[in-house]
């Protein structure tokens, strides 16, 4: 029994959460802008990883960042021949794309809970749009942002299908926790399956518990 897969999943999920934090806040801000052209369309595109089968999602990612595509080529050029697919970056990408809709939804909830007059007040007090964003909007949306990150982290920690397609079954010789569980099950090592499943479950439940607490705080904040 090794805990290396859990540690790898933890690293992948941590980096993926950082990526989704930045992308999720940006997309949520964009989607909360009522004048955005084709807002409903972009909203649907952002949410699509929730409904696609993981293998379909993985296939699309392979097409977009694979070695024959422009993104994959640019990455190789930038990082000395290193590819996104079948590497740590691929696992991060697969986990991030899967958890992005959860982060975006939670951040939007946080943004929509803000009284518009607080934003108007900041403007009348001389705050530029950027200062308003960093001193009023983001701090007030913080519970939603943090809850989104926690849910996204829990989701990223357990990614299986898309990760398998984009990053393969091993990253530098180590599988992620989800892939390890499948490997051990196929090998008949039930005790390893139970241990790893229990560890990921405890971690995931803890994350969701704290995410729920933060979301409740968001509602108290509004009152």
């Amino acid at each position: 029994m090794t805990w290396e897969p859990l540690w790898l999943s933890f690293k992948v999920a941590s980096v993926a959460t950082l990526v989704t934090l930045v992308a999720g806040v940006g997309i949520a801000l964009l989607l909360s802008w009522r004048k955005l052209p084709a807002r409903d369309f972009f909203d649907a595109v952002t949410s699509v990883p929730l409904v696609l089968p993981p293998t379909v999602l993985g296939y699309y990612l392979l097409v977009i960042v694979g070695n024959n595509g422009a993104v994959g080529d640019t990455w190789k050029w930038l990082f000395d021949g290193r590819t996104i697919i079948f590497n740590f970056e691929g696992a991060v990408l697969a986990a991030a794309v899967g958890s992005l809709p959860l982060v975006v939804r939670s951040v939007r909830l946080g943004l929509e809970s803000i009284d518009p007059n607080l934003i108007n007040a900041a403007r009348t007090l001389g705050a530029s749009p950027l200062r308003t964003l960093f001193t009023v909007v983001l701090p007030l949306a913080a519970p939603g942002i943090i809850a989104g990150c926690m849910t996204g982290f829990a989701r990223a920690l357990g990614d299986y299908g898309a990760t398998l397609m984009v990053a393969g079954s091993r990253i530098d010789g180590t599988p992620t926790a989800s892939i390890y569980i499948m490997d051990q099950m196929l090998g008949g090592k039930d005790e390893n399956v139970v241990a790893m499943a229990a560890a990921t479950t405890i971690f995931g439940v803890a994350m969701l518990y704290f995410a729920n607490k933060l979301t409740r705080r968001l509602h108290i904040h509004r009152a």
Partner: peptide, 12 residues
């Protein structure tokens, strides 16, 4: 300076 009906004091 604008004082809103709900005052709009920053709660944080």
């Amino acid at each position: 300076a604008y004082v809103f009906q709900g005052l709009a004091l920053f709660p944080h």
